[in-house]
Amino acid sequence: MRTIDLVVPIKPLRAAKSRLRGAADNGVGEAAAHERLALAIALDTVAAARAADRVRTVLVVTSDATVTAELAAEGVAVAPDGPAAGLNPALRHGADVLRAHDPCAAVGALQADLPALRPAELDEAIAMAAAVFAAGRARRAFCADARGEGTTLLLSAPATALNPRFGPGSAGRHRRSGAYPLPGEWPGLRRDVDTGDDLLCAAGLGVGRRTRGVLTP
Rank of each mutant, 00 (worst) to 15 (best):
residue 5 D to H: 04
residue 11 K to I: 08
residue 11 K to V: 08
residue 11 K to F: 12
residue 12 P to R: 13
residue 12 P to F: 12
residue 12 P to T: 06
residue 19 R to V: 01
residue 19 R to T: 07
residue 22 G to P: 11
residue 23 A to K: 05
residue 24 A to G: 02
residue 25 D to W: 05
residue 25 D to M: 15
residue 25 D to C: 13
residue 26 N to H: 10
residue 28 V to E: 15
residue 32 A to Q: 05
residue 33 A to S: 08
residue 35 E to P: 15
residue 35 E to S: 11
residue 37 L to W: 06
residue 38 A to Q: 01
residue 39 L to G: 06
residue 41 I to S: 01
residue 44 D to E: 11
residue 45 T to H: 05
residue 45 T to I: 13
residue 48 A to R: 05
residue 51 A to F: 07
residue 52 A to D: 02
residue 54 R to L: 14
residue 54 R to A: 08
residue 56 R to L: 06
residue 58 V to M: 05
residue 58 V to D: 11
residue 59 L to M: 09
residue 60 V to C: 08
residue 62 T to E: 09
residue 67 V to S: 07
residue 67 V to E: 07
residue 71 L to N: 01
residue 72 A to E: 15
residue 72 A to L: 10
residue 74 E to A: 08
residue 75 G to N: 02
residue 76 V to T: 10
residue 81 D to F: 14
residue 82 G to S: 02
residue 83 P to Q: 12
residue 86 G to P: 02
residue 89 P to L: 03
residue 90 A to Q: 03
residue 92 R to D: 15
residue 94 G to I: 05
residue 94 G to T: 03
residue 95 A to D: 10
residue 98 L to R: 08
residue 98 L to P: 15
residue 105 A to Q: 09
residue 108 G to E: 08
residue 108 G to W: 00
residue 110 L to C: 00
residue 110 L to N: 11
residue 110 L to G: 00
residue 113 D to M: 07
residue 114 L to G: 09
residue 116 A to R: 00
residue 117 L to K: 01
residue 118 R to A: 12
residue 122 L to E: 00
residue 125 A to Q: 10
residue 128 M to N: 12
residue 130 A to V: 04
residue 130 A to S: 07
residue 131 A to I: 13
residue 131 A to F: 11
residue 131 A to H: 07
residue 132 V to T: 10
residue 133 F to N: 05
residue 134 A to F: 05
residue 135 A to S: 15
residue 138 A to F: 06
residue 138 A to E: 07
residue 140 R to D: 05
residue 141 A to N: 10
residue 145 D to W: 02
residue 148 G to W: 08
residue 148 G to N: 08
residue 150 G to A: 15
residue 157 A to K: 04
residue 157 A to N: 15
residue 158 P to C: 01
residue 159 A to H: 15
residue 162 L to A: 03
residue 162 L to T: 00
residue 162 L to S: 12
residue 164 P to H: 06
residue 170 S to H: 06
residue 170 S to E: 09
residue 171 A to G: 10
residue 171 A to T: 12
residue 178 G to Y: 03
residue 179 A to G: 12
residue 179 A to M: 10
residue 181 P to V: 01
residue 184 G to T: 09
residue 193 V to H: 11
residue 194 D to G: 06
residue 195 T to M: 11
residue 197 D to F: 13
residue 199 L to R: 05
residue 200 L to G: 14
residue 201 C to I: 15
residue 202 A to M: 00
residue 204 G to T: 02
residue 206 G to A: 01
residue 207 V to T: 01
residue 210 R to S: 07
residue 213 G to F: 12
residue 215 L to G: 06
residue 216 T to S: 09
